[in-house]
Computed example of a mutant assay.
Amino acid sequence: MANPRVLYTDPPWLVENGVWSERLATVEREVLGPDVELRFGPYKDGRYQVTGPGMLDRSAGCDVLVVYRTQITEELLDAAGDRLRIVIRQGVGVDNLAAPLLEARGLPGYNVPDYCVDEVATHTSVLALALERQLIPQHRTLTGGTFDIYAGGTPHRTNRRTLGIIGFGRIGRAVARRLGAFYGEVKVYDPYVGRDLAEGYGARAVGTLEELLAQSDLVTLHCPLSPETEGLIDSDALRAMKPGAYLVNAARGKLVDPQSLGKALEEEWIAGAALDVFSPENPHQDPRWKPVLQHPRVVVTSHRAFLSEEAEASSRRRVAELVRAALDGRTEGHVGRVLPQGAAW
């Protein structure tokens, strides 16, 4: 029988200083051993070719697919063929795993739901406090040659303000503990979590999204992307927020409608926004993001809230260990099993 075949479709850790090299797959080769044929998606002109014939050719006859940004499709699964046993997302989000499609094919799907809780909670807190203390306008003004303590406006005491958290899973709870220490009140909206749970994290649950938006001075998103949440923050939601409120999104780009956010900033429905995620991932590929990126009351980062040396090392090892377990037929008990579409936040 042929050796097991594993395809990592678009692993970012194979790129170092702009150079791609499969020699960097040290952890994966250590864990999987010499009996596994390790494949990688096609990389050309500084990026992975996540669609097209090259990717389909690489997936042919694979036992395991490990995806990062690549979208699971019927075409990709068909190309892999009957040997395919499992699909794994090397990350927290599961929207690109196409859970209903995997369920229809009888294929288990896994993610790594908890490897970067510390990093995302920290990054969210940094984005929020940068807005509250108007750090970016201050930096630009001072480095531009002007000393002005009022550049960006005059901040408010955060201990008199209310933090609103949408989605109260692992990261939402970590944010309540960490960022919530700066705020006088913490409110939570999550229709899939019992109201009493928030009390254990020093927060209060509210019954509707509209209630949370109306009461919060800073709103941060921590829900997954699903048909239920796509475009959750649209014109209606932004109009429901306080005029002096801030929006933070380090969850999924499609949760926020870019045109609505641009208009909300321009017409001062809200005071500012901080974003780590966009759709498409690179916002320069969609002109609708341009007014947001150029707005003086916006803080942006390049989808790196999850990133640290420790988190990346943990993710790589845990995924490799899950691949090895799948090849050995012993995945029972592993965390990260993906539920069908419509699962809780």
Rank of each mutant, 00 (worst) to 15 (best):
K187T: 03
T158A: 09
V175A: 10
A151K: 04
R195G: 00
R133M: 07
Y110G: 05
V117F: 01
G153E: 03
G93Q: 09
G184D: 10
Y150A: 06
G167I: 14
G194F: 06
V186G: 06
Q134N: 14
V186P: 05
A181D: 02
T124Q: 10
D114N: 15
V186D: 06
G180I: 10
Y183M: 10
T143G: 00
V117R: 10
I136N: 02
G106W: 09
N111D: 07
L102C: 02
I171S: 01
I171G: 00
T158N: 06
P100N: 08
A181F: 08
N111Q: 05
Q138S: 08
A98G: 00
P137F: 03
A128S: 15
I171K: 05
D196S: 13
D190S: 11
Q134S: 14
V193M: 11
V112W: 03
T162L: 06
R105Q: 10
T154D: 01
L142G: 00
P155W: 08
N96S: 06
L135N: 04
G153N: 01
G180E: 13
Y189M: 11
P113K: 11
D118C: 04
G184I: 11
P191H: 11
R195F: 08
V175Q: 08
G93V: 02
R133A: 12
G106E: 09
R195E: 12
L131E: 06
V175S: 12
D114V: 10
A198V: 10
S125E: 04
F182V: 04
F168C: 06
C116I: 14
H123V: 04
V120Y: 02
Y189A: 15
Y110W: 09
N96G: 00
P100C: 04
G144E: 03
